[in-house]
């Protein structure tokens, strides 16, 4: 896989442990320690079960067009968060960030996706993580207060 400075940005590995990483069943398929950002044109969208796929054309630093796939949870999860079959305009330019394939294929596992108008969709598991961490902080605070009383 090439490293691009144009349409594709390969980010260095995060040391931060992601809760979403623990959820996924695809540890052998995607590298959840790395993050790749793609900016390109949506050419096809399959909002299906068990997995959804966004097909993108991305122009690399050499001006060559590459075909990438953004893999995502299935319609079961995404429809609950507002994803629809017609959410992308005709050849809409989007930005998608995700975990790259472990096998070098031009595919990422969705972390977040930003439409042309700025609307952002986050991997449902990641957005859940934020709510759960807030709950944990509340519970920890209550436990500490009870312990002090």
């Amino acid at each position: 896989m090439k490293s691009f400075i144009g349409g594709v940005f390969i980010l260095s590995a995060y040391l931060l442990t992601s809760i979403a990483q623990a959820h996924h069943s695809f540890r052998g398929v995607f590298d959840f320690s790395k993050h790749t950002t793609l900016r390109g044109t949506v050419v096809k969208f399959d909002l299906l079960n068990p997995h959804a796929r966004v097909f993108m054309e991305v122009v690399n630093e050499n001006g060559e067009t590459e075909q990438w796939v953004v893999e995502a949870p299935g319609k079961l999860s995404l429809a609950r968060r507002g994803w629809t079959d017609d959410m992308f305009g005709d050849r809409e330019v989007i930005t998608a960030t995700g975990n790259p394939s472990s096998t070098g294929k031009m595919a990422i596992w969705l972390e977040d996706l930003v439409l042309n108008d700025g609307t952002k969709f986050i991997d449902p598991l990641v957005s859940d993580d934020e709510a759960i961490e807030a709950e944990r902080r509340d519970r920890a605070q209550r436990a500490a207060e009870q312990s002090n009383n």
């Binding site: 442990t17 809760i19 623990a22 993580d129 961490e133 944990r136 519970r139 920890a140 605070q141 436990a143």
Partner: peptide
């Protein structure tokens, strides 16, 4: 472990990993 005051500064990811 979530309701243990000793874990007040430990994030959920860490506690979940411990339980797993």
């Amino acid at each position: 472990i979530l309701d243990d005051p000793a874990n007040i500064d430990r994030p959920y990811a860490e506690l979940r990993e411990e339980a797993e």
